[in-house]
Design a binder for these strands. Structure first.
Lengths: 232, 232
DNA sequence: TGTACGGAACGAACGCCGTTCGTGTCAAGT
DNA sequence: ACTTGACACGAACGGCGTTCGTTCCGTACA
């Protein structure tokens, strides 16, 4: 980062650090973290590195590739676990939770995920770990494969939703939930009986609680499905 | 569309139809259907209506609002059902399937959904129907509320994925799946044993099959959860 | 019938964006 | 000392969302 001593005198510039894909991804992640993915423009990232937008194209084909590189970095930082049949569900939840947290650290990054062809090294390592955990839990291969698919879908969608709500406005915890509840509870009961009666339940729990519920419920379904096909 | 006979002579213009929010949404949906959501620019939609981009701002606050109006239109066209406790699961699947198909008709539209505050008329009607179906199935209120949440998440994410793959390139059915399978099967078995052994399962089934699996599995989990808490 | 009014339509412009091109610059190899 | 080649970067292109000021036209009123 700071090998600037040598050439300090030759130019008035502080002898900038050399560009590299890693440095660009770092800068892009920093921008995303503080200002969201929409602020990750080529000009903005370049400015973060004290250079011009054109300089980035030596290391990155285009903006989309940069976005995918960011996602890959985040995916690669998810700590993987050694499957233990006794704790496979907790382990699975831990991996998914870590991934979700990684995504939510960089608001909007989750929108890039569906385009991922699943074929990068980081994604494959994560997939391998998920499949191993499923196998440790005795989930049938087809159920495990499609289950991973759907679990990742839930992770992505949850992170997306959380990002949007976080960036939509600071006031989300206090007033907004209560106002939403009142909207539900105040609907005409003859047309919306269930919305009215479920008003409290609809706004209950924070993002993490809802996420855990979703994953646990899906895993319940997977287990039920597996044991059912085993018995028959 | 063609009431141009009357004033043909007074102007060289074909006496354009009057602008309105509905007409703008129509045009925007037409563009999205044929060229994807990214092509829904204010200029393009305006051109479709034979006018300038500035004219749209009388009826639509900005592009985001237009996108939400499009989504609301699609959501409003999902046929709702009268809950029947004997067929609630099939009915629930039908509603979700219709929604998914609506979303997939307009590639990219699903990316707008997470921002939706759930408070528009169309969304509320759909939510009411889902909750009613859950109630008919004997799902506990809290499970039903969070279940709807997660089911919609799956619908959104699935539609998103399908859109991306559809627009990524025409060649997805034939070669791509087989190449993906070979990628999985060809990984080093010592590092990726499960990816290798699950290669066939990972690429099995089309989008609809995977979607149905996800929904059914989640419903299995919901039912299991409900009956469990009922028994205890 | 003439006229003033107000909302709708619209051309032009602003400041962004991603991306490309041609030139400048510097260090290593000969 | 000179060549060479890769990297850095200013400038520019076309397109975007959005705004502003003006023009147009149907309507309501005098």
């Amino acid at each position: 980062m700071d090998a600037s001593v040598r050439s300090r005198s030759t130019r008035d510039r502080p002898a900038k650090a050399p560009l590299s894909e890693a440095a660009i991804v770092d800068a892009a992640l920093a921008v995303a973290r503080s200002d969201g993915l929409a602020a990750v423009t080529m000009r903005r990232v370049a400015a973060e590195l004290d250079t011009g937008a054109a300089s980035l194209y030596v290391y990155v084909r285009n903006r989309d590739e940069l976005l995918h590189a960011m996602l890959d970095r985040v995916a690669g930082e998810v700590p993987l676990v050694k499957p233990d049949p006794k704790r496979w569900r907790k382990q699975l939840m831990a991996v998914l939770d870590a991934f979700r947290e990684g995504l939510e650290t960089y608001p909007g990054l989750a929108t890039v995920l569906p385009e991922e062809p699943l074929a990068t090294d980081s994604s494959l390592a994560a997939l391998e770990n998920l499949l191993a955990l499923m196998a440790a839990g005795g989930i049938a291969p087809q159920d495990a494969a499609w289950g991973c698919d759907n679990l990742m879908l839930i992770v992505t969608a949850t992170a997306n939703e959380a990002d949007v709500r976080k960036s939509a406005g600071a006031t989300f915890d206090d007033d907004f939930v209560e106002r939403l509840r009142k909207t539900f509870a105040g609907m005409p009961p003859e047309d919306y009986p269930n919305v009215v009666s479920h008003a409290d339940a609809l706004v209950a729990g924070d993002g993490t609680k809802r996420f855990h519920f979703g994953i646990e419920t899906f895993l319940d379904g997977l287990v039920a499905r597996s044991s059912r096909s085993t018995h028959s």
